[in-house]
């Protein structure tokens, strides 16, 4: 898929992230918006999967270890056909398979229950090893949060990754990506517990490391290619991202780690994501029925 198409999908997914979080009245916009370009590039750029057969043994797997960003994954899954897009607005509601954090049992296509931070890399190592033992061509993509890396289990897994399965079954079917948006719940990561020097740490544990702009789909695609080409070892990509990317008042603001927008804020955010200026907004809504309906839908929500 061309880079321009991926950007367009990512834009549409950003709109849906804002929409579903506004309906839910809670959730994590900042990390969902920082990770969406990575997810879109993986899912629509290269993932070997079949939404009609989520249990296909040789499917590629995505483990979103930073489980609080699951709205981003839900938008991508809906677009890929795992469930109807209309279901997105049931996020966090009683009885919905779209749980606040990923639930593998509730929603086919979710590969691991995450959200209790620090556990996804270990699960990914096990999956990658199991697939190697089964001689499956499938690949595992694991996405870590930056704050999440403060968890000790991540470093147990980091130490094991390049060694596990050697020499016959090295985990070169595993790509790990750090969504380095530099903000965690309480404050900036550097203020809470700085990760630096992050690349040197992973390199010291034996990982080949690349550093990219996590919003540039061309760079993401190239880095994923290079990680896939690595033989004999899993590979790590540090993706520099902007928390809240695409919505000016959310960008780089720790306030928006875990708070949902109010309807008026959501409508303003959608205008920004679509790249429409305030002046042009009324005209835009007259010509774009889909966005008009969405704005009406959000405007009708209880402003709380």
């Amino acid at each position: 898929m061309a880079d321009g198409q991926l950007d367009a999908i990512a834009r549409a997914c950003r709109v849906q992230i804002i929409r579903m979080l506004t309906h839910a009245g809670s959730g994590h916009p900042g990390g969902s918006l920082s990770v969406i370009d990575l997810l879109v590039t993986i899912v629509f750029g290269r993932l070997r999967h079949d939404p009609r057969r989520p249990d296909w043994a040789d499917r590629d797997r995505i483990v979103l270890s930073k489980g609080h960003a699951v709205p981003a994954l839900y938008t991508v899954m809906a677009r890929a056909g795992y469930f109807p897009e209309s279901q997105l607005v049931t996020l966090r509601q009683l009885g919905s398979p779209l749980q606040g954090h990923p639930d593998r049992v509730a929603l086919p296509g979710i590969e691991a229950a995450t959200g209790s931070l620090g556990q996804g890399l270990s699960i990914s190592l096990g999956m990658a090893l199991g697939l190697k033992l089964a001689r499956s061509p499938a690949r595992v993509y694991c996405i870590l949060g930056d704050g999440e890396i403060q968890e000790g289990q991540v470093w147990e897994a980091a130490m094991a990754g390049p060694k596990l399965g050697q020499p016959d079954h090295p985990l070169d079917n595993l790509t790990v990506i750090v969504d380095y948006n530099r903000i965690q719940l309480d404050d900036f990561v550097a203020k809470i517990l700085d990760l630096e020097p992050l690349l040197a740490k992973w390199q010291a544990f034996g990982w080949p490391v690349q550093e990219i702009d996590g919003h540039d789909v061309a760079q993401i695609g190239k880095a994923l290619d290079q990680a896939e080409a690595a033989r004999g070892t899993p590979a790590l990509i540090v993706a520099h991202t902007v928390k809240g990317k695409g919505v000016s008042f959310m960008e780089n603001n720790p306030e928006w780690h875990g708070k949902s927008p109010k309807p008026a804020e959501a409508i303003a955010a959608i205008g920004e994501i679509l790249g429409v200026s305030e002046a042009a907004w009324p005209d835009y809504l007259r010509t774009d029925a889909t966005t008009r309906a969405l704005v009406d839908e959000l405007g009708a929500l209880d402003p709380k």
Binding site: A112, I123, L125, G126, M127, A134, E156
Partner: peptide
């Protein structure tokens, strides 16, 4: 897996999810 029980349990979960 070495003296790293949490990782061992997680790797076990991943292996189980891949059919082991």
């Amino acid at each position: 897996l070495g003296i790293a029980e949490s990782n061992m349990i997680g790797v076990g979960a991943g292996l189980a999810l891949a059919g082991k």
